[in-house]
């Protein structure tokens, strides 16, 4: 079964870029440009990893991350933040909001894929060890 990745970014050009490259890599991808819809989508689709933009007009990525991680069916889903802000304070806030990784634009799609694979490996290993 394909790993499901949730992408939330208000810039549809980034959504398309990431979706295309992740689908090509064999992932199942669900996307939205509206963070307010993301919680409902996630509770329905149960993604294994989420890629969230930080600066979005309706709801910032950190707030969205907290909302996603409160969903019982999502549990400890790893979250990777994408941002065009490279400030240290943002990173700290991201990790406090539940991020497991942080990618600053500009990046290559391969960078993101490598991060996804890494966090999934760690996540699966921790799941096995906790069983």
């Amino acid at each position: 079964m394909k790993t499901c990745v949730l992408i939330v970014d208000d810039d549809e050009r980034y959504v398309e870029l990431l979706e295309f490259n992740l689908v090509e890599q064999g992932y199942r991808v669900i996307t939205t440009t509206r963070p307010a819809e993301a919680v409902e989508i996630a509770s329905r689709e149960h993604p294994q990893v989420a890629i969230l933009d930080v600066m979005m007009p309706e709801m910032d990525g950190f707030t969205l991350a907290r909302a996603l991680l409160r969903l019982p069916e999502i549990g400890k889903m790893p979250i990777i933040f994408l941002t065009a802000k490279g400030q240290g304070g943002d990173r700290l806030e991201g990790f406090e909001a539940g991020a497991v990784d942080y990618l600053t634009k500009p990046f290559l799609p391969t960078d993101l894929i490598a991060r996804i694979e890494k966090v999934l490996r760690v996540y699966r290993r921790s799941e096995v060890s906790s069983e």
Binding site: Y14, K105, P106, L108, P109
Partner: peptide, 14 residues
């Protein structure tokens, strides 16, 4: 910084 990173990210990615 935000605008430059956003534009460069799109160019690099595409």
């Amino acid at each position: 910084d935000f605008a430059l990173r956003t534009s460069l990210g799109l160019i690099k990615g595409y």
